[in-house]
Amino acid sequence: MSDIDARLNELGLTLPEAPAPAANYVPFVQTGNLVFVSGQISQGPDGLILGKLGADMETEAGAKAAATCALGLLAQVKAACGGDLSKLKRVVKLTGFVNSTLEFTEQPKVINGASDLLVEVLGDAGRHSRSAVSAASLPLGVAVEIEGIFEIA
């Protein structure tokens, strides 16, 4: 068990199974020591986390949805590393999409749910560059989708 797996256990967090692609794409691409992970949608143990920020979902609930995206990202990185998270060196960049109304302006606070989780699990290796943008709609009506770039050994 890697230190990252141990930290996840300590925090009471469980990585989901890395989901298979839902269309004509791959879940991740490795080039050199970088892994580019396709967008992971907000999904918890009870299913998809649906909603539109600024309409039927509050910022705090959106941040929790974003945290589930971060767990999905880590699950894909674990798959890319052959099941060995000790190969993960750092999070490089996240791009977060928030299903939100035109008036909603707290996209960065929503994506903080993912950023905060990654730093809590990985420490300084979880600190990353980031974009947080609004989307008029996301696949299946989910609240959040996040893609990421990771450095591995």
Rank of each mutant, 00 (worst) to 15 (best):
T14M: 10
L15H: 01
P16G: 10
P16I: 10
E17Q: 12
E17I: 11
P19A: 09
A20V: 10
N24G: 10
Y25R: 11
V26Y: 05
V29Y: 05
Q30V: 15
T31P: 00
T31C: 10
G32Y: 08
L34P: 00
L34M: 14
F36K: 13
V37S: 08
G39Y: 06
Q40P: 00
Q43S: 11
G44R: 07
G44D: 15
P45I: 08
D46I: 04
I49E: 11
G51L: 14
G51A: 14
K52A: 13
L53R: 06
G54W: 07
G54N: 11
M57F: 09
E58Q: 13
E60C: 00
A61V: 09
A61L: 09
A63C: 04
K64M: 12
A65M: 04
A65Q: 07
A67L: 05
T68W: 03
C69G: 02
A70H: 03
L71I: 01
G72I: 06
G72C: 07
L73N: 07
L73Y: 01
V77M: 05
K78P: 00
A79W: 01
G82A: 10
G82N: 08
D84Y: 04
L85I: 03
K87P: 00
L88E: 03
L88C: 04
K89Y: 01
R90I: 02
V92M: 06
V92Q: 09
T95E: 12
G96D: 03
F97Y: 14
F97R: 14
V98T: 12
N99L: 07
N99I: 08
S100G: 13
S100E: 07
T101W: 08
T101H: 05
T101P: 04
L102T: 10
L102E: 14
T105V: 14
E106F: 03
P108T: 11
P108H: 11
P108N: 12
K109W: 00
K109P: 00
V110S: 06
V110G: 06
V110E: 02
I111D: 04
I111F: 02
N112K: 13
N112R: 13
A114H: 03
S115R: 15
L117T: 04
L117A: 09
L118V: 10
V119H: 00
L122R: 01
G123W: 11
A125D: 11
R127A: 09
R127K: 13
H128E: 08
S129C: 02
R130W: 11
